[in-house]
Design a protein around this nucleic acid. Structure first.
Lengths: 242, 242
DNA sequence: ACTTATTTGTTCGTATGTATG
DNA sequence: ACATACATACGAACAAATAAG
């Protein structure tokens, strides 16, 4: 028997790394938790300790785990802490974590308001809306896929300005909105469909966090509605209550 | 060719129902959204409209959709709206939705504080903790699986009282805690593991919302830490910002 | 304060399969 | 065909930090 079997082209340490990563991303190993020792992992996977170390090194490189000599290897919260406050900007949150925020406009078009969105924005169903689909990234890693709906009549230049600046804040400012805030955020989760998986660079079957949010003006009038899908293993929403 | 093929024992309408249910639970059809018309569904699934009606009836029976004559069939928000406030009690939230809250104690034992929990509760690692695992249900439908950790020295009678009353509020009150509130809630999502799936009555691969929460006393001293896993297709967290 | 066991970090050595020229 | 370089994998030993008693 050869000690190093070809194994269909996939390196052994990569399999071990994938196995550990899966357990982290599906919550079997929670953030901060201590992993089994290198020898234990080696035994359960029936590989040499070196192979485990190679796998752990790869995960540590990506910031998923952190080794402490004499103590153990711990799961790092690779998840971006995403505070939900009344005034949260994606770019600020990502920037605060020392990462580089990016956004990519996918599509922008006008469409008629669905019953649901119309109710949220206090418009009549069928009212013209500007719909903007975008992808947001941190350090080139896709974080969320979002759709924003704006009343087309109130924000006639929205598409143009958003296309140029990539900033929703600037779109609103241009139309005279100085002060706006998050009124409500609703969160649930689902499984990534093929489209999500492709754009968020996820495996099929990965969990996504689904966020429905409504931003309003200072006086409470609805401004825009959002529906976003976050790669669940890359973010953790933080609700600070006070 | 026979129009009604046997299809390996699974009724055709059940397949259609499953397909629709999957789209609801994975977020392809969002809550409140209008489904395609019965004839459309019939065409895409290549079945008779009667078969679609049978499928929709089964889903309506379970409260997942609601048909409106002359308008369409809409996705019912089967998801329990779960507000995240400083003072939220599971029983109140469920009761407010006109459903009957229940709780089942799974295990209660003492264990040493992990590094992570110790840091949260501002204790030394290894400090004795009372650990309570419980299942919470609404109308006999499992909603979440939670673990609570309490400092054992501060709450010596906790196990006894929780076992009798099933109420965490009562445990705290007995030890002289009048005022406590939620300090922080962290939310992410993952895939249900075998244990989750069994206890929450989920299919394997279903998404779960993972909540880490910390409750503190009026003066900010940590009281208890919680880790819960919610069936994602049964709840939607609501963060009201003001 | 001390000992002991555990765990990660490091450095040897050996061997095999793959890609390159 | 052959030599070389490289990535992969296993084995053994020891150093250094930590945890537990």
């Amino acid at each position: 028997m050869t000690l190093a079997e070809p194994e269909l082209g996939v390196a052994l340490w990569r399999k071990v790394a994938d196995s550990i990563e899966r357990k982290i991303s599906d919550g079997s190993y929670l953030s901060g938790e201590k992993l089994p020792s290198e020898t234990e992992i080696a035994n359960t996977h029936r590989v040499n300790r070196h192979t485990v170390r190679r796998a752990l090194a790869a995960l540590a490189e990506r910031g998923l785990v952190r080794a402490e000599r004499g103590s153990g290897t711990y799961v790092e919260s690779a998840r971006l802490a995403y505070p939900l406050r009344t005034r949260t900007r994606f770019s600020e949150i990502v920037g605060a974590g020392g990462r580089e925020p990016r956004g990519r406009l996918l599509t922008a078009c006008t469409e008629a308001a669905s019953k649901d969105i119309a109710r949220q924005l206090k418009l009549k169903p069928g009212a013209p809306l500007l719909r903007i689909d975008g992808l947001r990234l941190a350090d080139r890693i896709p974080i969320c896929l979002g759709t924003t709906w704006l009343p087309a009549e109130r924000f006639p230049d929205a598409e143009e300005i958003y296309r140029r600046s990539g900033s929703m804040t600037r779109v609103l400012a241009h139309h005279g909105v100085r002060d706006y805030r998050r009124a409500e955020t609703r969160i649930t989760a689902a499984i990534a469909d093929a489209g999500d998986a492709a754009q968020l660079d996820l495996r099929l079957g990965s969990p996504v966090l689904i966020v429905e949010a409504l931003d309003v003006e200072g006086d409470g009038r609805p401004l825009l509605a959002m529906r976003s899908r976050f790669a669940a293993d890359r973010v953790q929403f933080v609700v600070e209550q006070d």
